[in-house]
Amino acid sequence: MATDAALRRLLRLHRTEIAVAVDSAFPLLHALADHDVVPEDKFQETLHLKEKEGCPQAFHALLSWLLTQDSTAILDFWRVLFKDYNLERYGRLQPILDSFPKDVDLSQPRKGRKPPAVPKALVPPPRLPTKRKASEEARAAAPAALTPRGTASPGSQLKAKPPKKPESSAEQQRLPLGNGIQTMSASVQRAVAMSSGDVPGARGAVEGILIQQVFESGGSKKCIQVGGEFYTPSKFEDSGSGKNKARSSSGPKPLVRAKGAQGAAPGGGEARLGQQGSVPAPLALPSDPQLHQKNEDECAVCRDGGELICCDGCPRAFHLACLSPPLREIPSGTWRCSSCLQATVQEVQPRAEEPRPQEPPVETPLPPGLRSAGEEVRGPPGEPLAGMDTTLVYKHLPAPPSAAPLPGLDSSALHPLLCVGPEGQQNLAPGARCGVCGDGTDVLRCTHCAAAFHWRCHFPAGTSRPGTGLRCRSCSGDVTPAPVEGVLAPSPARLAPGPAKDDTASHEPALH
């Protein structure tokens, strides 16, 4: 009773807030009518008042009428009001819900409408889902798969039609296919003929059939049928067999079959498995989609049935006599038709004709302190090069084509190399640097090759510096006499390219 009084008091307290929050009759008014909170006449009256005075006034009048009803109607109103779709449509209802007392429970059932309790003993237990329907569909599909699609060729003596089998029958139906081979029951999904010589313990000319048996419980189990008994694959494991010639990621696949039913060829011909030897223990289905393919039931050349050999690369099948050149017997292992072999060759040939990528240039590290003349020119003028003790990398590039010797140069053309002071002394051009340390401070000019250098860098042994005729380390061993002091540049003949010694390969005349 306390809860009923509290709900009535809360409705009177929030009546105006609810009326202002509800700006549309749908969905709240319609939901109240659906849950029998508002009768039909009051529903029509509220809609009429909404058209006349507006939605807030109409709902305020409806809530005032609701306060005169019993506690069950008020409880049902609060339940409908706080439904998710009403809270989404009328956003101003959320503060009312947040301020609702926590001790007021809106989930209690309506009085007088409590459903009768059902004894637990009368409640049926839930049924577990079964796979009976899938099993029945598999039974119905198996006879259809064994139905012949056409008439065999005159040369083929193997013609068999499976008798119709009602689904209610649980007995196995067997077809006489000759040579002791028996087909599987209607619940078998796949059958492959297997030679009895590969099964340990088999006697006589009995041949087993590799099947997948579907049981009534819905589970499946792969086994071997020899005669009327089934054997699990673990009985046929043979770890010492060295003649297993397995197909790549293979499961067994029928390579020879008669049109209309699988079996042995007439005249004692023995149908073979995809792999010879003992049956392997793992009978998992292969991951290669080509091995799941269903080959055609007629020859791809003459479009006739009979004894066919199936290609492992495509769905086509052929007569042995229709092949070019014809085959006398079934080859062992994987067999592919000429079209598949030709496609494989065409895929391999473009790969062989692809040009080989060019090898990157060989990189040879230079000892610290040495650099090529090109690196000396590329440096920024007026700045010493940083990191001189790091190992430089010199790339061996292809030799350029031989060019004509340089033409003779006048001494005026070499004027930018040297600057003559007032006393006739050779001065260095701006930006000249030593080729060893890279520093341009207090550098000297070689009178023979006009290269800038430090005496301490080229002659670290402490050799005394002569007063005139300074030469760098590369030119100090040259027998050519030094030019007379005061000459602007060496003779043009000295600039012609010539053979250089091994220790002077990195010091070429550089223009500054």
Rank of each mutant, 00 (worst) to 15 (best):
Y85C: 03
D41P: 02
Q57M: 00
P116G: 05
A19W: 00
E51F: 00
V104R: 04
K235Q: 10
Q173E: 06
V192G: 07
F43M: 07
T232N: 08
G242I: 00
L29F: 00
R79V: 08
Q225L: 01
K235V: 14
E216A: 06
R149I: 02
A142F: 12
P254Q: 13
P176R: 15
G54H: 02
A202W: 04
A265R: 07
T68P: 02
Q213M: 00
A145T: 13
A205M: 01
A261Y: 12
P200M: 15
L255D: 03
L175H: 14
F59H: 03
G242P: 04
Q262F: 15
K131N: 02
P163Y: 15
A5L: 10
L62C: 05
S239T: 12
G251C: 09
S249A: 11
E136C: 13
L146E: 08
L175P: 04
N86L: 03
A144Q: 02
S71C: 08
N86E: 00
D4A: 05
S24L: 01
T68E: 00
G201K: 07
V206A: 07
G112W: 14
Q172Y: 15
E17F: 01
G219H: 07
S156R: 09
I18L: 03
P39A: 00
T46G: 00
V226H: 05
P254H: 09
G178Q: 03
P109L: 07
F77S: 01
K42R: 00
G267N: 08
L66C: 00
V188K: 07
A145D: 05
G227L: 04
E40S: 02
M194C: 05
A58G: 01
F236M: 00
K222M: 01
R89W: 09
P119M: 05
L11I: 03
V20F: 02
R174E: 06
K114Q: 03
H30Y: 13
P27G: 02
S249V: 12
L11Y: 00
R9C: 00
P143T: 15
P254K: 06
P254N: 01
D105K: 05
Q212K: 10
H60D: 01
P109D: 10
G219R: 08
K114N: 05
K164Y: 05
L158S: 06
V104P: 04
P266E: 04
R190V: 02
A138N: 04
V20D: 02
L177T: 03
K52N: 01
L175N: 03
L87I: 15
R113D: 06
A144K: 03
P125K: 08
G228L: 00
T46Y: 04
T232W: 04
S217I: 05
P116M: 11
R89G: 03
I224P: 04
K42D: 00
L47A: 05
G227H: 03
K120P: 13
A5F: 06
A145W: 15
E53D: 05
V118A: 10
T16Q: 00
Y90R: 02
W78Y: 03
R132Q: 03
K159I: 14
H14R: 00
L49G: 01
D198I: 09
S217V: 09
E136K: 01
S153N: 06
R247I: 09
L177G: 00
P129S: 06
H30R: 03
P166S: 09
L97V: 04
K161T: 08
E229Y: 00
K164G: 15
T151D: 13
A142E: 12
K253Q: 15
K235Y: 10
H48V: 15
V118Q: 06
K253W: 13
A141I: 07
Y231A: 06
L66E: 01
L175G: 05
F77R: 01
L273P: 11
C55D: 04
G112M: 04
S187V: 04
